[in-house]
Simulated assay, not measured.
Amino acid sequence: MNSSNPFFKNKNFTNTSKADVLDNADVMTISGTINKSLILLGLLAIAFAVTWYMTFQGYNPMVLTIGGAISGFVLVLITSFKPEYSRQLAPGYAICEGLFLGGISAIFELTSYAGIAMQAISATMVTFVVCFMLYKYEIIKVTEKFKSVVISATIAIAAFYLISWLLSMFTSYQPVHYGNSWMSIGISIFVIIIASLNLFLDFNQIEKGALNRNPKYMEWFSAMGLIITLVWLYVEFLRLLSKLSRD
């Protein structure tokens, strides 16, 4: 139970054969993972701008938005089982998620209030920096108990979302996390807290991967996993801000 992010459960983090590593140039490093993460964020931002621009130019972004979401999910599944392909698939995932996020952000911008997307981006980045500093200076330590609590909470959230979605699809059930009730807002805040705590697990697994001298391609794999958490966090901030803006 190392991380609730499925990427960081891969056996490559804990069962790497040293025979696969030829020299220091072929091993995973923290700096290398940071560089790969910045590349993926850059690609995501470019794709984000495409659907954002299309929406405000009067084009319907739904094809790119939905296509990006589905394609991104497929790439996550493939890379989860074949991390050695992450060098090729991680950039594609970043582009797909950028198309998806750009589309839904533009929709929220039009249906909630101007500036909500920038507020969500700012909140996500501030949360990331705060969590990173807390981890770096060991103010919050990633213990086995910490991991167990975060993983259990993340699984519970995933199950809750899935069951609520299925019930709303086939019955007249209205999920409690919809709308802007105090309960719905409280659920969103709780989910944001859990998503933020997942960042600590991600940082810890990246550090472990570097210490274990995992193969170089695991930098792309790790960067992709970190982007997954940031995307989740950003979407939840969008949802919360939208709820708070309603009368």
Rank of each mutant, 00 (worst) to 15 (best):
N5I: 15
F7H: 04
N12K: 04
T14D: 14
V21E: 01
V21T: 06
D23G: 12
N24Q: 08
D26E: 06
V27E: 05
I30S: 03
S31T: 08
I34Y: 12
L38K: 08
L38I: 09
F48A: 02
A49L: 15
V50N: 08
V50L: 15
M54R: 00
G58A: 06
I70W: 06
G72K: 02
L75N: 04
T79M: 05
E84L: 10
E84I: 13
L89D: 06
G92A: 12
Y93N: 12
A94F: 08
G98E: 04
G103A: 03
Y113P: 15
G115Q: 13
S122Q: 03
T124S: 06
V130G: 12
Y135S: 10
K136A: 07
T143Y: 01
I151V: 15
F160V: 06
W165G: 03
M169P: 01
G179S: 11
S181Y: 01
S184K: 00
I185V: 08
I187Q: 12
I193F: 13
L197G: 06
Q205R: 12
I206G: 02
L211E: 04
L211C: 01
N212F: 11
R213K: 13
N214I: 05
P215C: 07
Y217H: 11
Y217M: 04
E219A: 06
W220A: 10
L226C: 11
I227A: 03
V231P: 01
Y234L: 15
L240A: 11
